Simulated assay, not measured.
Amino acid sequence: MKHAVASARMRQILGERNGAAAIEFAILAPIVFALVFSIFEAGWIMTQSIMLDRAVSRTSRALQINGAKLTYAQFKAAVCSEAIILSDCVKSIRVEFTPISSATDFPTNATPCVDRSLAIDPVTTYTAGQPSQIIFTRACYVVNPLIPGLGMGLSFPKDATGGIRLTSSFAFVNEPI
């Protein structure tokens, strides 16, 4: 008798459909939200990368055409003023200029980035070069992922502070005087 009552109660519980939608939502909502936030973060990182590329190329092009001799700080400030969406740009970007004399002079190592765990920013190679000389410009901007433990934030290599490195390169020839 007890067994029959327990079996009938079990069939009644298993046949119940109240709350089924809530369980489906609880299972699927995190997956959908993770996908949506990952897409948003991918777009934001891509936008910042494009703005960095644009800023480096426009500033380098202006330097090439105008023949102006900018200091490291002036060039960095000019790149940051072009890349208007890069937050805390001056502190998070490092720029490098390398004059090229032959095909073997192109830098082969990784683009140097700001180490945000240090209070100082060491000097990088910054030589404006001579007239008619090829100059290779590299910039690295360190940005925090929007959602570090999800989607795109998990897939990018990060530095010691959890920042993602966005890099840009541009080569140009100094105009002759």
Results as ranks from 00 to 15, higher is better:
73 A>F: 00
74 Q>Y: 03
93 I>H: 01
67 G>V: 01
75 F>A: 03
141 Y>G: 03
110 A>Q: 11
100 I>D: 05
143 V>Y: 14
137 T>H: 03
12 Q>N: 10
108 T>P: 02
123 V>M: 01
55 A>D: 02
51 M>I: 06
23 I>R: 06
39 I>Y: 13
68 A>P: 01
65 I>R: 02
172 F>T: 12
115 D>E: 10
95 V>S: 01
121 D>M: 06
73 A>L: 05
29 A>I: 07
173 V>T: 15
35 L>I: 11
169 S>N: 07
21 A>I: 08
165 R>T: 13
166 L>D: 02
169 S>V: 04
43 G>L: 08
106 F>H: 10
5 V>M: 15
73 A>E: 10
124 T>W: 00
52 L>G: 06
100 I>Q: 05
105 D>P: 10
3 H>T: 13
27 I>D: 02
152 M>Q: 15
122 P>G: 07
129 G>E: 07
166 L>H: 05
23 I>L: 15
61 R>E: 09
30 P>F: 01
171 A>E: 07
118 L>S: 14
97 F>I: 01
95 V>L: 04
137 T>S: 04
141 Y>R: 03
81 S>G: 07
22 A>C: 11
29 A>L: 13
20 A>Q: 05
11 R>Y: 10
133 Q>A: 05
155 S>R: 15
95 V>C: 00
141 Y>Q: 00
18 N>Q: 13
52 L>A: 08
19 G>A: 09
106 F>W: 07
83 A>E: 00
170 F>S: 12
128 A>W: 09
113 C>F: 00
157 P>F: 05
112 P>A: 01
129 G>K: 06
113 C>A: 09
109 N>S: 11
107 P>C: 04
84 I>C: 10
51 M>F: 13
144 N>M: 13
112 P>V: 06
158 K>P: 15
15 G>D: 02
121 D>K: 08
155 S>G: 15
26 A>Y: 12
6 A>Y: 13
4 A>F: 07
10 M>S: 11
142 V>F: 03
133 Q>K: 03
171 A>Y: 04
19 G>K: 03
39 I>A: 15
109 N>V: 12
174 N>P: 02
40 F>V: 10
